[in-house]
């Protein structure tokens, strides 16, 4: 279980998160929607352990552990995965190499045997195919020269291979055409299980037609201003964020 309590965070003295409360139980999928600049990415970075934020108040408990005390790689090892809104390029490092190093680091942490080259290739080929990606993308350097859509698919591939316990998807739908969106969503749905939780951040309701959430929250100006079931997403699609937008933040 992930419990976020009264989380406040600042960047360069500016308060971005202003008291977030959110509880995510195993097996649940929560969606966070909200206008640009609301603090959605900030929240996802904080949960993943990126530096540069000052947490002024609040706590995050992850399966009984103080998440905010853990190094990013410890969080990853404990099953936290962030699909980045803007995936990062690593020149010269083949996508397969990156995936293999990452997977084996996690397996090692869990006390499982590391996969050898053959075992790994078999696994990754299966996952690649399921996501409608070409093997060619495996050989290319991580995200280098990838189109926006390819980058997002690549994030999904990493998630499929690493099988996290808590996946945060930060606008994984943006940049995807409708066919790609459906495939990525199928990949995500395939990962849904009673032990796995997800936090799906999106700007559009569209994604939630495919990944049907248990709960929907609206984040605006650093606070969760409304929570509800999946019907909330439909309502938002109709009325937009006007009711929650920057005005309320001001």
């Amino acid at each position: 279980m992930i419990e976020i309590k009264n989380l406040h965070a600042t960047v360069d003295g500016k308060e971005i998160l202003r008291g977030i409360d959110l509880t995510i139980r195993p097996g649940e999928v929560h969606a966070i929607m909200g206008p640009n600049g609301a603090g959605k990415s900030t929240l996802s970075y904080l949960l993943a352990g990126r530096e540069g934020y000052e947490i002024t108040e609040g706590s995050v408990t992850y399966y009984g552990k103080d998440l905010l005390e853990m190094e990013p790689e410890e969080r990853a090892a404990e099953g936290v995965f962030l699909a980045f809104q803007y995936p990062v390029e690593i020149p010269g490092v083949a996508n397969t190499t990156f995936l293999k190093v990452a997977l084996n680091a996690l397996r090692k942490h869990r006390g499982e045997k590391e996969l050898d080259a053959m075992q790994f290739l078999k696994l990754v080929r299966e996952k690649t195919k399921a996501l409608g990606m070409s093997d060619d993308m495996l050989k290319r350097a991580v995200n280098v020269g990838f189109s926006g859509g390819e980058k997002k698919r690549n994030e999904s591939l990493q998630m499929a291979v690493l099988e996290p316990k808590f996946a945060i998807l930060d606008e994984t739908d943006s940049g995807l055409d409708i066919d790609a969106l459906r495939i990525v969503a199928e990949g995500v749905n395939a990962l849904r299980s009673p032990e796995r939780s997800m936090l799906v951040i999106t700007h559009y309701q569209r994604l939630l037609d495919y990944i049907v959430p248990d709960h929907v929250h609206v984040l605006a100006a650093g606070r969760i201003v409304r929570s509800g079931g999946k019907e909330l997403a439909v309502e938002l699609e109709k009325n937009g964020y006007r009711d929650f937008g920057a005005n309320e933040a001001a």
């Binding site: 530096e51 190094e71 790689e73 990452a102 690493l162």
Partner: peptide, 24 residues
Amino acid sequence: EDQLFYCRQRGLSAEDAVSLIVNG
């Protein structure tokens, strides 16, 4: 920092991340 964080988010230690990025 972004490259380092991206690697660490995937489970690599800071040193393994540097080694991987430099090898690339």
